[in-house]
Write a protein that binds this DNA or RNA. Structure first.
Lengths: 142, 142
DNA sequence: ACATGTCGCAACTATATCTGTTACGACAAG
DNA sequence: CTTGTCGTAACAGATATAGTTGCGACATGT
C-alpha cells in the first residue's frame, strides 16, 4: 500500500526533544533533529508546526530559538501525534462516484464507510495505548 | 494521509459478481463491473487479477468469457481481500536511514516496527471479522 | 477455418501525495 | 545592528495509484 512516514518522523522528533531536554538542554533546533532523522530541517519544521498546532510542542524564535515539549512525554500518545499529522481516512472510498443506478453502486459507499469507521476506531484505541514515553523507553532499551 | 481505494473497489467488484451470480448469471465481465464502479475495465481486470492470484475469483477466456467467484462470499473476509490487493505495511518507517550514531536514530526503527506490527495485527483481526457476505447484506439493506 | 467477444498484459499518461531543497522575511536576544 | 533560528512560500523530485490505448491470446459458436 501507500505508506507515509509522517507518524514515524514525528515520534522520532518528539522522542529526540524529550531526551535532549532530560539531558538538561532548554531548546532543540530543527537542524539538530533533522540531523538525527537524516533529512532537511524544513521537513522537521513543517512537521513540528503541525504538532505545535495540536499543542504538543512549542517554538521560540529569535536568537537561541528552537523547540520545546509542551507536555510530558507520558501524557502524549501516538493517537495525539497521529491526529496532528495525518489527514483524511485510512481507507479511501471510490475516487469517482459509482453508478447510482446500480444497486451495488448505490449502497457500497455507505456500507464501506460504516465498516471503515469501525476499524479506524479500533486503530485509534491501539494508538492511544502507546505513549511517547513508551516509545522513548523502547528506543533506549535497544 | 494517503489512502488508496483498492480495497474498496475490490469489495465492490466481489459484491457485484456475487449478486449477479445469485440472479442466475454465470459470468460477469470486467466491462459490467467497471460500469458499476465507474472506471475503466482494465482497472477492474488488474484488480481482479490480484484476487485471482489469491484464489478468490476465477476467470474464463474465449467467447462468453468473464469472471466467477471461486468461493462463497460467506467464506471471504476483508482480510483476504486486503492481503490480495495491498502491499507493504500500513505505516512506513523512515525513508532514509536515521543517524545510527545518535541514540534515538539508532533505536527508533526497531521500536516503531514493534509498535506498528502490533497495531497491524489488530487491524487484521478487525478485517477478518467482516465477510464479503456481510458487505453485500449491508449494501442491499440501504 | 474463421468471426466474435473477452481476458492478459504492456506501455504510456495523468493525478495526487509526500519528500526534499532553496530562498528569504520575521523575530528576539545579545 | 548582528546573529541564529523559525515561518512559510515556491519549486523540483520521487513514488503510488488510476486511467487509457492497443493488441495478442484464447475459446466458443458457426
Amino acid at each position: 500500500m501507500s505508506a507515509n512516514s509522517r507518524l514515524t518522523i514525528a515520534a522520532h522528533a518528539l522522542a529526540w526533544i524529550g531526551l535532549y531536554q532530560r539531558q538538561g538542554h532548554e531548546v532543540a533546533t530543527s537542524e539538530q533533529i533533522a540531523s538525527s532523522v537524516n533529512t532537511n530541517p524544513v521537513v522537521i519544521r513543517r512537521l513540528l508546526g503541525d504538532l505545535r498546532r495540536a499543542g504538543l510542542v512549542e517554538s521560540r524564535r529569535g536568537l537561541g530559538a528552537g523547540w520545546t515539549l509542551a507536555r510530558d512525554l507520558e501524557s502524549m500518545t501516538l493517537l495525539d501525534v497521529y491526529e496532528a499529522v495525518e489527514t483524511g481516512p485510512l481507507f479511501a472510498l471510490h475516487r469517482a462516484t459509482p453508478d447510482q443506478g446500480c444497486v451495488v453502486g448505490h449502497g457500497i459507499q455507505p456500507a464501506m464507510r460504516r465498516i471503515y469507521d469501525g476499524i479506524e476506531e479500533t486503530l485509534r484505541g491501539e494508538l492511544a495505548r502507546v505513549t511517547l514515553q513508551d516509545v522513548l523507553q523502547d528506543v533506549l532499551a535497544a
